[in-house]
Design a protein around this nucleic acid. Structure first.
Lengths: 131, 131
DNA sequence: TCTATTATAGACTAATAAAATCCACAATTG
DNA sequence: CAATTGTGGATTTTATTAGTCTATAATAGA
């Protein structure tokens, strides 16, 4: 059970945007260069972040990606959900329906994790990051 | 990000052992039948549980799997770790070492989840299960 | 209007991991 | 010795992740 590398890329890309370029647009080209990853692959993640409403995209020359207005509200969970989807990490495969006691325990644990990820905003990190 | 089906099988197998056969050995054959899954595949999970010291195996006729003495102590986390391994679900792939702030946040969240999984014992569930 | 720059979308390929099977072997009971 | 049971390794199948490639659309600036 592991978060995908795509999530890792997305979190780092968001931290870069928040810390280094909170208002001006940054191209995938530059972002990929800064992170040292493939730009074609990174662009997939950025498109997902756009669809999730976390960033804004501007086509054409001098375009790129820019944070949304509400950047103070963007949590780790928002970013992770944008990339990994929102389905639970545990789904009982037996046919005792939604009543599975095991599933209830694991999902309860998952909620605790999500609570932490939801309360932690990416901007907090940017402040630490810059000192 | 999803727990494997193997974990689902292992949790259900353990619940069965705790609830229905806390002292006598149960064969994979029977266990697989009760759960409605392939016995060859299920046996892989059971072997992992043995290696993790959660259950005990007895070869030969009338053999099978039996719980260890300390069954009151067996937590969800023990079972999950036995199957999924103990490596963290997030590993930063960039070369800023162990100092990655993003990784610290995600691992902190993971710890919260593990706390719940560790505090929840499989025997508790068995009691609920039986009413 | 033309060209360069940028994002988006979809098809496609490659690599890795999960799920499952098969078989040979070892241990134990009776 | 024969039947039953667990263990280990090799192998296959299927699904997911990671990544590439190409065509298309939007926009800025000459």
């Amino acid at each position: 059970m592991k978060y995908s590398q795509a999530t890792d890329y997305a979190l780092h890309a968001m931290l870069f945007l928040v810390a280094e370029a909170p208002d001006k647009p940054v191209s995938v080209h530059l972002l990929a260069e800064k992170l040292g990853v493939s730009q074609t692959y990174l662009s997939k993640m950025l498109t997902k972040l756009v669809k999730a409403g976390l960033i804004h995209s501007i086509s054409g020359a001098n375009g790129g990606y820019r944070l949304k207005r509400n950047q103070e509200d963007i949590s780790f969970l928002d970013i992770i959900h944008a990339i990994e989807g929102t389905t639970s990490m545990f789904e009982c495969s037996f046919n005792h329906g939604n009543e599975c006691l095991i599933q209830q325990v694991v999902i309860d644990a998952e909620r605790q994790m999500e609570q932490v990820l939801k309360s932690k905003k990416i901007t907090e990190l940017a402040k630490q990051f810059k000192g």
